[in-house]
Design a binder for these strands. Structure first.
Lengths: 215, 215
DNA sequence: GACGGATATAGGGAAAACCCTAATTGGTAC
DNA sequence: GTACCAATTAGGGTTTTCCCTATATCCGTC
């Protein structure tokens, strides 16, 4: 099978190429540094499999590219390789047409197995994430708006989130916003519920990721 | 030369191993998923080179591990492989004793060249960062004592600071570091005293400014 | 030996966070 | 009218943090 690898890190691309070219049934025909380049190479080489990183800053992301490639080159199957085990990413990627979702923190054998499963017409998802997928499938239809904190959270929640993340106490936040401590607690709890965050460190990380912490 | 690879992503480790084992003069003798494991493997194998990622959450970071390894195994040379091209990271890493700093967004040849340079007793820095280093070197005597957390804080304090800033509770940090809650409280208090920080938000801001939160 | 720093830990009380539950009001959509 | 969400607030119990004080050991320096 013909494979293209897309990852923003050159030595990482090279490493994957070495792994895959060791397999008798796999041949890496090209490598790309971002989604745009991946699209162009898919158009040129028409591979069986595109193995692509999800996040390739500053270039086009694997998510965007997946959608375009599935639309224009449906015979090429996309396997996403990523560090993100957050189910939100998984859902987005699958909705955009990817056939596989593999974590970078997986052994080679799993990556190879995923590629072969997808090549044979199946869909591969890391087992630890399959449960999340089923649960989410049962819920109401997933909506694009749900990835954007500005659409998921209320205005007040958007005010409270960075303050909590910056380490201000509930009492301090209450004084800043002219509300009661109980209200702050309630907002924080609701934020974590809406964003499915289980701990304060997760909240801080989320705030950092979403660039909420500009001092 | 004997090499150990440390990176939190299994397939990435494997990829690097493939690249390096292709070289007649290189042999990968072990791989580690975090700083702690890297330390143990260095103790066991006494490699010539440790090729290590800078950020390996949730395990011990490459920065912390570099300091420990340089202290206890000075004959092993550390090459940091990272996505971070920010000079702040570079300086911290070099101060902690690393001999090489290579960006993941580099071609194989550069990685191999860096390893060989370091093995031969040199120091390797990506050319794009060398200018920054010289500029900062000129400034450094003037500013260093005042602003350098690595001079102001003890090793343990440097471990505790980012954890506090990330929102982990004292109890959680105590469990992570195998110390008592009281010790965590003491370290945090000492950190704030030394850095003249008056509140938790100031501590978080400091940690962000000094780029402690991606470690 | 004296001193200081690093690391570790304790006691104890007050304050705060966490967590669960519950309620009210206003606005909007059906 | 009903249901839902946002904003606000409460009660109450448990856990944790904060803050102050104190101690011990080890190591390095003078």
């Amino acid at each position: 099978m013909k494979i293209i690898i897309a990852d923003d890190h050159a030595v990482v691309r090279s490493g994957f190429m070495h792994i895959l070219n060791f397999q008798a049934d796999m041949e890496v025909v090209a490598t790309a540094a971002d989604g745009l380049e991946a699209y162009e190479l898919v158009a040129k080489h028409r591979p069986d499999i595109l193995l692509m990183d999800l996040s390739m800053p500053p270039g086009e992301s694997g998510l965007i590219a997946t959608g375009k490639i599935k639309e224009d080159f449906p015979e090429t199957k996309v396997v996403i390789l990523t560090m993100y085990d957050d189910e939100e990413y998984l859902f987005h990627v699958l909705k955009n047409g990817a056939s596989g979702y593999v974590l970078k923190n997986s052994p080679d054998e799993e990556l190879l197995s995923a590629i072969r499963t997808v090549y044979d017409g199946g869909t591969y998802i890391h087992p630890s994430m399959a449960t999340s997928l089923v649960r989410q499938f049962v819920k109401k239809d997933f909506d694009e708006a749900e990835t954007d904190p500005y659409k998921m959270l209320s205005r007040r929640e958007i005010e409270v989130l960075p303050l909590v993340a910056k380490g201000y106490g509930n009492k301090e936040i209450a004084e800043m916003l002219y509300i009661s401590v109980k209200t702050v607690e309630a907002h924080k709890s609701k934020i974590m519920e809406k964003l499915n965050l289980k701990s304060r460190p997760e909240l801080v990380e989320y705030a950092l990721r979403k660039k909420f912490l500009n001092f």
